[in-house]
Design a binder for these strands. Structure first.
Lengths: 196, 196
DNA sequence: TTGAGACTAACAAACGTTAGTTAGTCGAGG
DNA sequence: CCTCGACTAACTAACGTTTGTTAGTCTCAA
């Protein structure tokens, strides 16, 4: 269907260039039709963006919860690290991740409300994935008995920091930085009396 | 001087709206002259942006090193925390911070190289500020005897993460997150045998 | 035969930029 | 002391291009 292709191609362009810098001509080219033909499928440019936004939100939440189930029967360390790794890779490499970051970071003014709404929904999905792991970690004595919120916050900050840095360092340096940051994060959350 | 006023007003507009969405008409209006008069002071729009970029880079580095000297005779914890706090506050509140965030995170393609260059220069200035503190911390036994690089990396990641998150959360939630992330970072780098 | 979906042609508005002009300032030479 | 010429910095008018959008037409499948 052409309509879905418009959404798919627009997603890529919005992710790469942002909303304002992506023209209907760009989109039409990518889809392989002429610019006015877009109006057979959407009322205007804004409608295209909103369609993309909803599409991404839905897929993102699905992906997140799927991944979390994959590491269910492992140690706390492994489960946390898996979420961390998967989420980071996803945000760094996927078009959805890039789109998501761009749109939440510098939202086109017109869509500020819808975007914030989507962001909070996705974050909530993320939280429901992490919380059980951290709770179990505290209970088992693997993690320091800090507040659930504190541990979750620090986890987010770690991921967000590395996401940003991914833009600026070449792969080698970045790997190194990722390793160091994770190790120190783990030292920060791990209960010192826990050994194994 | 008109030229400096153009830079100042452009900085505000670029910070608020980004490069592409800021038109020469916007800038001219803010300065209080007509659009073509801008060409008496700059060759083109790109030249205006580059002037703003250099201006910001310079001021940013100056501010950074100034602030570091302020806490010279304090404990390792205080010195590190001061750098961290000052840097984040600055990024949150100042127009320069917003501009810096915007251009480093989603650089206008044309200026990708210059921007990367500026980012690395600012980071280098930051490194010369932090390294002595960390080295002293290891020597005195306050910090874990990890590699200098590892500790520095983790510090950057912490700052970068919060730097990014400033956009997502309202002030209250952010303060909370900042506190939690710092505490856990400190637990991660502090030598467990050090007490005081 | 009707409707969906492509097309061409054209629109006004906004974009960055150039050309040409004018008024004011400043220093050097007669 | 005055004046000429260069310079600065503002202006109006217009350029060609691109923007999002609309109107009207053609085609093909149901």
């Amino acid at each position: 269907m052409t309509q879905q292709k418009i959404i798919d191609e627009s997603l890529i362009l919005f992710a790469q260039q942002g909303y304002e810098s992506t023209s209907l001509a760009n989109i039409a080219d990518a889809v392989g039709i002429k610019k006015p033909s877009l109006y057979n499928h959407f009322d205007n440019k804004e409608a295209i963006f909103l369609a993309v936004l909803q599409d991404v939100a839905q897929r993102e939440m699905k992906y997140l919860t799927e991944q979390a189930e994959l590491s269910a029967n492992h140690t706390i360390y492994e489960r946390l690290h898996h979420i961390y790794q998967v989420y980071l890779d996803h945000m760094a490499d996927s078009t959805e991740g890039l789109f998501f970051k761009r749109v939440t970071f510098f939202p086109p003014e017109t869509f500020a409300d819808e975007i914030k709404n989507v962001f909070l929904r996705v974050e909530e999905a993320m939280t429901t994935v992490i919380h059980p792991v951290i709770e179990a970690g505290i209970e088992e004595g693997v993690l320091r008995p800090l507040s659930l919120d504190s541990l979750t916050s620090a986890f987010y900050t770690l991921i967000d920091g590395l996401f940003l840095e991914e833009n600026f360092y070449d792969r080698e340096v970045f790997k190194q930085r990722q390793q160091a940051s994770w190790d120190i994060f783990w030292l920060g959350i791990k209960d010192p009396s826990w050994e194994e």
